[in-house]
């Protein structure tokens, strides 16, 4: 399979990339690690006239300690995220989940920013960004702006990134030792999307749940937070019965798809079961 012909641009800076987007308008598509875009181009489901390759902009790679947050360059590969000591120490949920994205070759080339900007609710990292309450830094012709994860994922494969903007950085708050975490992924093989995935973080205090966060992968067109479950757990005892009862509400407010992997009602079932397992692991119950 061979992509349709396109022109190739390889900017050396974010400013040059933004200028290229301005010049080529909706003909242009940004190339990050290429592991979502190139398969779509080979299937001719995407046929951009101009591909703007972000692969040679050094500023977009790496993890920086920025006080209370980690600033992760959008072009940092999954493998670099998994191996990064700062990520492992301060945001272990991100390292833990990123290690489950695709397979080793995909993680060597695929990037955090690419996975988020692609905006696929079946991808693992959008739900994790929701749970981590990450912020996305976008750069466009008039400078930079920051969008919270809650406002970033707009619709199916659609994010808040404007046509003339580049996602340059993902800012993730540091989480202290009080937080437990877990990502539960249900899929057939490494390369397959999660049929359903659940990201959970739990902060315990004196045997109770001080705060619980649950994010859902592939339960609709965007990555959802399971707000009913989170609300039921705030201040509740951190025991198995309470967690299981709260997990029963995990699929409330979602709109899961039916496809050849699963029907919607089965996805709802998975969301409840995986939420219980993720909460048990994250809370040490």
């Amino acid at each position: 399979m061979i992509p349709a012909a396109f022109d190739y641009v390889r900017p050396a800076s974010v400013a040059e990339a933004v200028a290229a987007l301005g010049e080529h308008g909706d003909e242009a598509k940004l190339l990050a690690g290429g592991h979502s875009l190139l398969p779509l181009m080979k299937l001719r489901l995407a046929s951009p006239g101009v591909v703007v390759d972000l692969g040679r902009i050094p500023d977009l790679r790496g993890v920086r300690d920025d006080g209370d947050v980690l600033a992760i360059g959008a072009m940092t590969t999954h493998q670099a995220v998994v191996a990064d000591p700062l990520v492992r120490e301060h945001v272990p949920l991100l390292a833990h989940t990123t290690a489950m994205v695709g397979d080793p070759q995909v993680r060597n080339r695929g990037t955090l920013g690419g996975a988020l900007a692609h905006g696929d609710a079946a991808g693992d990292l959008p739900a994790v960004a929701q749970v981590l309450e990450a912020e996305m830094v976008l750069e466009g012709p008039s400078g930079r702006r920051t969008v919270a994860a809650a406002d970033f994922f707009v619709d199916y494969l659609t994010t808040a990134v404007g046509e003339d903007e580049v996602l340059v950085e993902v800012r993730v708050p540091k989480y202290g030792a009080g937080w437990g975490y877990r990502y539960e992924k249900f899929n057939r093989v490494a390369q397959a999307w999660a049929i359903v995935g659940v990201a959970a973080m739990v902060r315990r205090e004196n045997g109770t749940v001080a705060e619980a966060r649950v994010g859902l992968t592939n339960m609709g067109t965007v990555p959802y937070r399971a707000r009913a479950t989170e609300g039921a757990l705030a201040g509740a005892p951190a025991d198995a019965t309470t967690l299981a009862t709260a997990a029963e509400a995990a699929d409330q407010g979602t709109d899961p798809p039916s496809d050849l992997n699963a029907q919607a009602d089965y996805r709802r079932h998975l969301a409840r079961v995986l939420t219980r397992r993720a909460l048990e692991a994250a809370s040490g119950a």
């Binding site: 190139l38 390759d53 070759q105 080339r109």
Partner: peptide, 24 residues
């Protein structure tokens, strides 16, 4: 991008060469 038969090392790490442009 599934089967990995086309895997080569790019700067020492494994990559699926069917999912990479020569220009990259």
């Amino acid at each position: 991008s599934n089967c990995g038969a086309c895997t080569v090392l790019v700067d020492g790490t494994g990559a699926k060469s069917c999912t990479m442009l020569a220009v990259q």
